[in-house]
Design a binder for these strands. Structure first.
Lengths: 172, 172
DNA sequence: GACATCGTTTAGAATTTTCTAAATGATGGT
DNA sequence: ACCATCATTTAGAAAATTCTAAACGATGTC
């Protein structure tokens, strides 16, 4: 009995490891750092909450890294702090409702980044409006530039509107 | 006349510089590198095509960097190679149809990244199906894990379907 | 209130990523 | 065919990011 389950046992833990690394590669591919994906993957596959040190041990990282990364995950609502009775350590578990993570964590972050870009588009647009003459460009060229800026501003507006709408509801 | 336009002239070029840097910050914020956004912003505000050396000069980078980054932009269909009669240098101009950039450049890249994550989810799911017993987890916990994996697989499927649909048409 | 244990901060080490100069390859002009 | 000029490749420098050990602060325990 025990011997029969041993081989699969080994391959399961190895598969979990692969899963964790794949999570890290995914977040890294999207420019979010490798650790955050590894950590979320670990917690997502854990029915039981983990303490900071548990996490650090499993991922073979320092407690310092674990602390900083878990706070980032908390900001994104991807991880919850769960109190464990009679233990003053911090325990964490993964948020399993992706809707919450996307809506409260990811989308606000994306919108914030887009807002920075959008404000510069408008700033340039306004600067262009007060500059009818240029030694670098002909009047016709300036019209083209202004049109492109308006197109960019329009795209930004559409994107932001879409992200703040109930698109997410439909999705999940 | 000339004196009257001089002050605005200065502020316009400065504003263009700000625009370019903002473009760089935006792509960098989304994990795409700072240079690619700076370069696209430069070309987007240029009615005339630029040669590789033009680009390198304006952005104060080496021709080597310009070459590698422009190829990346080409892969994303964000920049077009335009032949200039009687000049064997390569000239480039920005693609101004964002629909094309998103549809042919960004979305395929995103889907590719998601596909990697998705295949690992399924792989783990299959491994879990063949492992009914574990010394680390109770049977009830294993059920929870399997359910979470199915949820993740489902999310991945929805996401991928959405990205490959005509969502983009509606958007732009 | 001193001690023990935990989480956070921070200064700097280690790694990764980005960038460039130089070499190479490719192509057109003479 | 040779030279001149351009784009690309690559090996290694430079810069940015990520990670950690140690110091610190906070909180519960005896």
């Amino acid at each position: 009995m025990q011997e029969a389950s041993m081989p699969s046992q080994v391959s399961w833990t190895r598969e979990v490891r692969r899963f964790i690394e794949a999570g890290g590669n995914t977040t890294h591919a999207f420019g979010l750092g490798r650790l955050i994906g590894r950590m979320f993957a670990l917690l997502y596959l854990s029915p039981k909450p983990y303490s900071l040190e548990d996490i650090a041990t499993h991922l073979e990282i320092s407690k310092a890294s674990a602390s900083m990364t878990i706070r980032q995950l908390e900001e994104w609502h991807a991880v919850r702090h769960v109190p464990v009775e009679g233990d003053r350590r911090d325990f964490y578990e993964a948020e399993t409702e992706f809707r919450i993570i996307v809506k409260q964590g990811l989308l606000p972050g994306i919108r914030k980044k887009l807002a920075t870009a959008g404000s510069q588009i408008h700033r340039t647009l306004e600067a262009g409006a007060t500059v009818p003459v240029s030694q670098d460009h002909s009047p016709a060229e300036i019209q083209i530039i202004k049109k492109r800026l308006r197109t960019a501003a329009n795209l930004h507006k559409k994107l932001d509107g879409l992200l703040s709408s109930r698109l997410v509801e439909k999705l999940l």
